[in-house]
Write a protein that binds this DNA or RNA. Structure first.
Lengths: 133, 133
DNA sequence: ATCATGTTGATAATGAATCTCACTCCTAAC
DNA sequence: GTTAGGAGTGAGATTCATTATCAACATGAT
């Protein structure tokens, strides 16, 4: 739980709540733009800058987890629903992995580093692209 | 490996050789800009676009391995010297991990996906930042 | 209700990565 | 060795995700 030692009081705004609601409702990791687009359909759309700021806030709290997806895009998902991903080097497909391959990551490394999470990307070729090659 | 079935003849240019030489000589993963900067000091500097194109070529060949580093930067390293990384969520430090935590990744998944490589990032807090918090 | 200040959002700015296109110079063929 | 064709190069323009700016606003404590 990344107990954030905040020196600054934090305010509860409906915008932040809305961003979190979208991330929670999503079936997969979303880009900031996708979050923004989903909120745009709602009664009260919010600015894209606010979406970025809210996501960054939740990431610092350990609630939301950023993942670098192909194309240099960052995608955000609920940390409590963590999962890793596959990337096909031929067609670029980016798919979630059901089982996490690192069920027991080391909690602490010899250097003193304390591990709280991870991001794993398996690279290779999907069945379809193997057949095509 | 990754036997590329090229339909297009490939030419050997001194620019591509120079890029590969820089990556081979580097102690860690470099950004395209860092490769470009190192070549700029040499007798014959080359264009940044050519650096990007050469790196992409080597990646497709499986010779070079891209890694998404903090800040949305992509870094490149020799695939034969693969290693994973640590990221401190507080100070942003990005350090190489000595031992690879996935010595035996699955070669093939139930879906038929063939795994040829991976990228792992352990996230947490370095010793220094733990002391500071 | 009032006030101090954390927050928002439209917009400008940033910057990595890609695209364009005229020119260059590898390679294979002769 | 020459030559032709086309892959490759590079300076600069362009794209586009993300961040910074700043005046106006709204939250939470008093």
């Amino acid at each position: 739980m990344a107990a954030a030692s905040r020196a600054v009081p934090r305010r509860n705004t409906w915008q932040r709540a809305a961003v979190l609601r979208v991330v929670e409702a999503a079936a997969c990791h979303l880009t900031a733009e996708e979050v923004h687009r989903r909120l745009r359909r709602s009664r009260r759309p919010i600015g894209i800058a606010t979406v970025y700021r809210a996501l960054e806030l939740f990431v610092r709290d350990g609630l939301v987890e950023p993942v670098s997806a192909p194309g240099g895009r960052v995608r955000y998902g609920l940390a409590s629903r963590h999962h890793d991903h596959l990337v096909c080097l031929r067609c670029g497909a980016w798919e979630p992995l059901e089982a996490c391959l690192i069920p027991q990551p080391p909690r602490r490394l010899p250097s003193g580093f304390r591990v709280t999470g991870h991001q794993l990307e398996l690279r290779g070729y999907c069945a379809k692209c193997q057949a095509a090659a």
